[in-house]
Amino acid sequence: MRVGERGRVQGFAEGGRAYRRKLLSMGLTPGVQFQVLRVAPLGDPVEVRVRGSNLSLRRDEAATLRVERLT
């Protein structure tokens, strides 16, 4: 996703158990909406706003999320 785009967490990818608990504790639960705020020049990390908080996610952590783009 690109800077400024919004999305909704649909769930987690298979094999992403290592990060699932961490993402859930940060508020990235199924159904929650988020906005991409910044992406580092090489694409890692990505900063998103979730529930009024800004989170920085590494590319491999973000890849475990299944998301739906919102308009």
Score class of each variant (00 low, 15 high):
G27C: 03
V46A: 04
V67L: 11
V36R: 02
L70I: 07
E61Y: 02
A18F: 13
Q10I: 15
G15P: 06
R51E: 12
F12C: 04
G4P: 07
G16C: 05
F34R: 04
V67G: 05
E61Q: 08
R8H: 13
R17P: 11
R59Q: 09
E14P: 14
A40Q: 11
E68P: 10
R21S: 12
R2T: 12
P30R: 15
G31H: 01
P45Y: 00
A63V: 11
P45W: 00
F12I: 07
V32Q: 12
V48D: 00
G11Q: 07
K22C: 06
V46H: 04
L37R: 12
G7D: 05
P45A: 00
L28D: 01
R20G: 02
R51F: 07
E61K: 03
R49T: 07
S25L: 09
S25Y: 05
A13C: 11
L55I: 07
P30W: 14
N54Y: 11
L42V: 09
N54W: 10
S53P: 01
A13P: 07
R51C: 10
M1Q: 07
V9L: 06
V67M: 10
V3W: 08
G7F: 03
R51P: 07
L37D: 11
N54R: 15
D44H: 03
G52T: 14
R51I: 09
R8E: 15
L70T: 06
Y19M: 09
P41R: 15
G27I: 01
N54V: 14
R49N: 08
R66Y: 05
E47K: 05
R2H: 14
L28Y: 02
L65V: 02
L24F: 10
P41N: 12
V9W: 02
A18Y: 13
A40L: 04
R66V: 12
L57R: 00
G31A: 02
P41L: 13
V46C: 03
G31S: 02
T64W: 04
V48G: 00
T71K: 14
A18K: 14
G43L: 08
A63Y: 13
L23F: 01
R51S: 12
L23M: 03
L55R: 04
L57T: 00
S53I: 04
V3N: 09
A13W: 07
R6H: 10
R20V: 01
V32I: 13
V36F: 02
Y19E: 08
L65Q: 00
G52A: 14
R38H: 10
T29S: 09
R17Y: 14
V50R: 08
V50F: 03
R2I: 12
L24W: 08
T29G: 06
T29Y: 06
G27F: 01
A18C: 09
V32T: 13
M26K: 13
G4E: 07
V39H: 02
R2K: 15
R58Q: 09
F34V: 02
P41K: 15
G7Q: 05
V3I: 15
T71Y: 09
R20F: 01
R38I: 05
